[in-house]
Structure formats: structure tokens, C-alpha cells
């Protein structure tokens, strides 16, 4: 089967003589990959490496037959998009937050915020439309996590690197979000999902999901 995203022997050492991690894995179009390992094993670090926010000590990533170094980092991060566990809300309303990526040079050239799509997505993840005018910095953790997810989905990434997307959500809302993500994977060609999740049953939402286990040596600080 076609492999469109592959990371090979990614190694990262946290400090000279410090602990390090190894990981290899691949992703097929329309599929999800679970990143597993005990707490502190470096799961978030792997996602951050794949988003090119951290340079690994060694290893390489191939995306659609191209080495990652051949793709400009800004374009890479916009397509291979990382969403951290702790949602980041910027000053202003939820609407301002959803608009923000399109005010940047790169996405601004592609278009502007599709408000109808934004409303649809908010509804899909269980947020009322009135929340568009709420102050983003006063949202609860669960609301902010969903707004951050909607904001990321609106920029239409090809691969989502999600770090515990349901950590701040109750079981019902978590299910809703995961079901939406499972649909999102199928909605368009060449989409993929890398998921860090401690909740085993979260993985049942993604048929054919495979797992990559992080090998780590030593413990971090």
C-alpha cells in the first residue's frame, strides 16, 4: 500500500549525555497512526520534531516522495500541522482567533476565513455559534481545546499531529471530536493523522489504525 508520510530512525537526545528517544513509522493516506509510550517517553517531542519545531539529532522524514529538507519549513508546518495539548488562545474573540492564521502572509495568499465552514465545524465539535463572539481567553480548557482544533482544521492541513486532543474534554464531547476527526480523514484524498492519546478507547474510532512505540533510554528531568 502507498506510503505518503514516513519517518525513519528519528533520534533525539535531550542534552549531551542525556536521555534520548528513537522512533520510526509510516502513514498511509486516510489513516491514523497512534504514538505510544509511557509518560515522559517523548511522544510530544516526536510530534514537535515532525512539525520541525525541534531539530532531531538524526533521522529523516519523507512526505509524498520528498525529503523534508527539500520543503520550506513554513509550507511544511502549514501542511504537516501540529496542535499541542495545551490550547493557545490569542487576544480577541473566538472569531478573531479563527481569522488569525489567514492574516498571516502565507495563508492570506490562499484566501480568507470561510465563516460558514467555521460555523459548521464549531457545531460539529459541540460549540454554540454564539461562542464566535466570546473572548477567547475566558474560555474553559475544553472550549479552548475545541476552538484550537477548529482553527487548525480551517487551515486545511494534510497531516494533523494531535497531542492528546481529548485531554480537556468530557467523554461525550471527546467522542464527538474523534468521530469528526475520523470523518475528516476520509473526506479528502491524502489526509493523515498522528495521534498521541493516553485513552486506549480513543483509538477505536480510527479503523486500521496502526501504532508506533517510542523507544526511550534514560529519563527526562
Amino acid at each position: 500500500m502507498e506510503v505518503f508520510f514516513q519517518f525513519t530512525q528519528i533520534t533525539h537526545q535531550f542534552a549531551p549525555n542525556g536521555p534520548f528517544i528513537h522512533a520510526s513509522g509510516s502513514l498511509q493516506p486516510g489513516k491514523a497512526l497512534a504514538v505510544q509510550g509511557p509518560s515522559g517517553a517523548g511522544k510530544s517531542t516526536l510530534l514537535r520534531i515532525l512539525a520541525r519545531l525541534i531539530k532531531p539529532t538524526s533521522g529523516t522524514v519523507i512526505y509524498q516522495d520528498q525529503n523534508w529538507q527539500a520543503i520550506p519549513p513554513r509550507y511544511w508546518r502549514r501542511k504537516i500541522h501540529y496542535l499541542p495539548q495545551k490550547p493557545v488562545m490569542f487576544e480577541g474573540t473566538v472569531r478573531d482567533n479563527l481569522k488569525l492564521p489567514f492574516e498571516l502572509d502565507l495563508l492570506g495568499k490562499e484566501g480568507s476565513l470561510d465563516l460558514d465552514k467555521a460555523k459548521l465545524l464549531l457545531t460539529e465539535v459541540g460549540l454554540p455559534l454564539a461562542s464566535l463572539d466570546h473572548d477567547a481567553r475566558t474560555l474553559s480548557g475544553g472550549e479552548a481545546a475545541r476552538v484550537a482544533l477548529v482553527r487548525s482544521l480551517l487551515i486545511d492541513p494534510e497531516i494533523l499531529l494531535l497531542d492528546e486532543p481529548t485531554a480537556f474534554l468530557d467523554t461525550e464531547t471527546g467522542k464527538k471530536v474523534l468521530m469528526y476527526l475520523a470523518n475528516w480523514l476520509q473526506n479528502k484524498k491524502n489526509r493523515g493523522l498522528l495521534l498521541v492519546s493516553h485513552k486506549e478507547n480513543n483509538l477505536a474510532f480510527f479503523p486500521g489504525m496502526q501504532a508506533v512505540v517510542i523507544q526511550s533510554e534514560g529519563t527526562r528531568g
Binding site: A51, L53, R74, Y75, R77, R78, H81, Y82, L83, P84, V88, F90, L100, P101, L104, D105, L106, L107, S152, I155
Partner: peptide, 10 residues
């Protein structure tokens, strides 16, 4: 800053 970078910010 990293959130902005992830949206393709310069």
C-alpha cells in the same frame, strides 16, 4: 510563537 509558526508564520 510556536502556534503561529505552525500556521506557516514567518
Amino acid at each position: 510563537i510556536e502556534a503561529l509558526l505552525c500556521f506557516g508564520a514567518s
